[in-house]
Design a protein around this nucleic acid. Structure first.
Lengths: 341, 341
DNA sequence: TTGTAGGCGTTATCAA
DNA sequence: TTGATAACGCCTACAA
């Protein structure tokens, strides 16, 4: 075999080597059925020998399609990349996997503030469409993406706006699952640490799911509000403090996110309250960190693989003009140690 | 302002609207200084009004450069994306940030086994070069990337091969830092949970750093080997069991990765040993999970921002034929609760 | 300072 | 079944 080198080889070179025309090379390699088997053989052989690879830029220019999807990760302004919620990284990973499985390349960009908001992938022919993943806290980002020109192909995870092309976890079902689990395990005075007014749409949905489960058990739902603008862990910790100081009796906590639940867990443990014996705790997100707490956190986890697939499929449907289907990602309960047996 | 829509607008359209030639448009928008101010004004105005954006495929085809870097994330075969070590996600994030800061787009692909190994970004003109990030465990992947044609521009994080164009944490310094910290805090019988033969080159480097610090303190380094092929946490747990059962006295553990240290921490706690009072523990990686353990894990953290920058700068230097400089990423000690004050 | 023209390497149309 | 040929939209000599 010839030594592999990186000199530019065009389809003309392959054509010459195979003794056919350039267009035949293009067709043979593209799998055009009109090319005869022996010709295809010769072309493939020549291409292999010359180490030929299609110039994607030329191909895309000609085709008018890029075969690429853009994924924009919306972060908090100035936030360190290593502090990004692992949930979003998992979502990024599964989205890339789904795109790759469908034959698309993925362009990734982290964006956090107006200076670097940028969504013109489609106009610049860098991608056929865009997936925006991020926290609803960054309202400036959602305003920006919501104002993209008509005809932009995009879907999102995390926006507050209900008229955006969103995909979300089945928050209601997940919260109900969590609450029922605690009821079954004998907890009665279950308090929800969260918010019904947060821009985080899913927090409201999770509260509603919790409330529904409580009510259908004949119990009164109780919401302990988190303060805005703090790190999640701190929100959870403070809400736990406020709850304790309120004097309201409780024997279980449903945190609308894992980090809120973990913050509360830490606070309770620090005060000598025994989890799960005295107090049960359940979170929502299924991030890895929960597995390391003491006790490990019982939580509701989204099916990440499905999440990535739904985002990609919805986007591809939009691109091809079809009508998309599901937009809710199924969830499951992950029972660990923060609720009693 | 005209309603924004997504119909294709070419530089010819802008030229017509501005009453100049197409090449003038190209130059004006590229910031060519030969274009007069008034002309540039008119062109910019027309471009804005028509919502014109350059077709990057055409531009790249013409230029022969892509302005894009590819990042390949090497995972364990079949591993779920959400189970990928958060360390690598943080590295991915900071690499994307560094690339963006230098004006490059980033193409991301997760690859785990021979069926989907693919590194011909450069030949296909999808990218100007490639950054491969991954665990050294996946030797098949490193064999694949090591066999890329001459002239491929790439750098990597995580490979075993020393002749690869690698960038790494300053493992030796970090391990020394960790060990000295424990010595200063009064621990004497410090055992290293790790391996000097693992394909993970950094494990060996970390052991060496630990051993050097021990020896220069007049103490004997002790290595408790981890078993191969298990999840890191389990490796840590089992090594702790083996250490205890060996009967060898110890009052501190240096785990060559956070997850190994966390596994050991869990095992010790389960046996009623008090961390940090009876036993001190330090890990290596600085992942978020360590902050949630009880007690939170003292660890050595790489400067992720520098890591991303070094990877990108080294690759860009290679592309432009310059000689690259640093390849070691500085580390710092993050003191949390698993070592006594 | 600006315009003309050629070509980057494909894919796709139209003949043969 | 294959070959000529015309775009795709831009950048960049070269000329004016």
């Amino acid at each position: 075999m010839a030594e592999k080198r990186l000199t530019r080889v065009t389809s003309f070179d392959v054509a010459e080597a195979a003794g056919v025309s350039q267009s035949t090379v293009s067709r043979a390699l593209a799998g055009d059925p009109s090319i005869s088997a022996p010709t295809r053989q010769r072309v493939m052989e020549a291409a292999r020998k010359l180490n030929y690879q299609v110039d994607e830029n030329a191909a895309r220019l000609r085709r008018g399609k890029t075969g690429t999807l853009a994924v924009v990760m919306v972060c908090r302004p100035g936030q360190d990349r290593k502090d990004l919620n692992p949930f979003y990284y998992a979502l990024l990973g599964s989205t890339c996997a789904a795109a790759a499985a469908r034959g698309f390349e993925v362009l990734v960009a982290f964006q956090d503030s107006p200076e670097n908001f940028w969504g013109h992938y489609q106009e610049r022919r860098k991608a056929d469409g865009m997936i925006v993943i991020g926290t609803s806290e960054n309202t400036a980002a959602w305003d920006y993406f919501g104002a993209l020109p008509q005809g932009s192909h995009w879907v999102c995870w995390g926006a507050t706006q209900d008229d955006f092309p969103w995909v979300r976890s089945d928050n209601h079902a997940g919260a109900t699952l969590a609450t029922r689990h605690m009821l079954v395990r004998g907890y009665r005075h279950i308090v929800c640490l969260g918010s019904e007014t947060s821009p985080q749409r899913q927090f409201k949905e999770r509260y509603d799911g919790y409330a529904a489960a409580m009510e259908s058990a004949g119990l009164e739902p109780v919401l302990q509000r988190i303060e805005r603008g703090l790190p999640r862990e701190e929100q959870g910790r403070r809400a736990a403090v406020a709850l304790i100081e309120s004097g309201r009796p409780f024997d279980a906590i449903f945190g609308v996110s894992d980090e809120i639940a973990l913050g509360a867990l830490k606070e309770l443990a620090g005060r000598g309250l025994v989890v799960p014996d005295q107090i049960g705790i359940v979170g929502f997100d299924g991030v890895r960190a929960g597995a390391w707490s003491t006790p490990p956190l019982t939580t509701v986890e989204s099916d990440f693989e499905v999440a990535g697939s739904l985002l990609v499929d919805r986007l591809l449907a939009m691109i091809s003009g079809e009508t998309a289907t599901a937009r809710r990602v199924p969830v499951r309960l992950v029972v660990r140690g923060s609720t009693r047996p």
